Amino acid sequence: MIQYECLHHVSLTVTNLEKAKHFYSNILCLKEIQRPNFDFPGAWYDIEGQQLHLIVLPTSQTIRHNKRLSSREGHFALRVKDYDATLNWLKSKDVEILEKPKSMSGFAQIFCADPDGNLIELNVEQTDL
């Protein structure tokens, strides 16, 4: 049997590192951390002890061609402290969002996408609204 300690990181491919870094640093407010000096470009971010790794690979087969927001496509989810504050922040930055405040999941969800169409869910327990 496998015993887990935690989710360590999620890796996403991107095509334009500067656009991606702007989104993750300035829109999602994640803290960039030191990354090993790999022979390919990318960036790493800390998310409360777990990590998000961006890898530049324009030929990636995981880049979504249809950038339409969908809660059913592959995504990663971040728990936020305040649904309304997060929603207002994203709207103030003109980020396209898909709101699901009464999702059957039990989470109040906000979906958005980075410049390459990687989907991100931001959520809180519905009782936290």
Rank of each mutant, 00 (worst) to 15 (best):
M1H: 14
M1N: 15
M1P: 08
Q3L: 12
Q3E: 15
Y4H: 03
Y4V: 05
Y4S: 04
L7R: 04
H8E: 15
H8P: 00
H9T: 01
L12P: 05
N16Q: 14
L17R: 07
L17W: 03
E18A: 13
K19N: 14
F23N: 11
F23E: 10
Y24R: 09
C29P: 00
C29E: 08
K31W: 02
K31S: 09
E32Q: 11
E32N: 01
Q34P: 00
R35Y: 09
P36C: 06
N37I: 09
D39C: 01
F40D: 01
G42N: 13
G42W: 04
G42F: 07
W44H: 01
W44M: 01
G49V: 07
Q50K: 14
I55V: 12
I55R: 11
P58L: 07
T59M: 08
S60W: 04
Q61K: 09
I63L: 10
R64Y: 07
H65W: 01
H65G: 02
H65D: 03
K67D: 02
R68I: 07
R68P: 00
L69V: 06
S70V: 02
S70G: 03
S70D: 05
S71T: 13
F76E: 03
F76W: 11
F76C: 02
A77N: 14
R79A: 14
R79E: 15
Y83A: 06
A85Y: 06
A85E: 11
A85I: 08
N88K: 14
W89M: 05
S92F: 01
S92C: 00
D94F: 06
D94M: 06
V95N: 00
I97W: 05
I97C: 04
E99D: 06
K100N: 06
S103T: 05
M104T: 14
S105G: 03
S105I: 09
Q109Y: 01
I110H: 00
F111R: 08
F111M: 03
C112E: 10
A113S: 14
P115Y: 11
P115W: 12
L119C: 01
L119V: 03
E121W: 04
V124T: 09
V124E: 03
V124K: 02
E125A: 08
Q126D: 02
T127D: 11
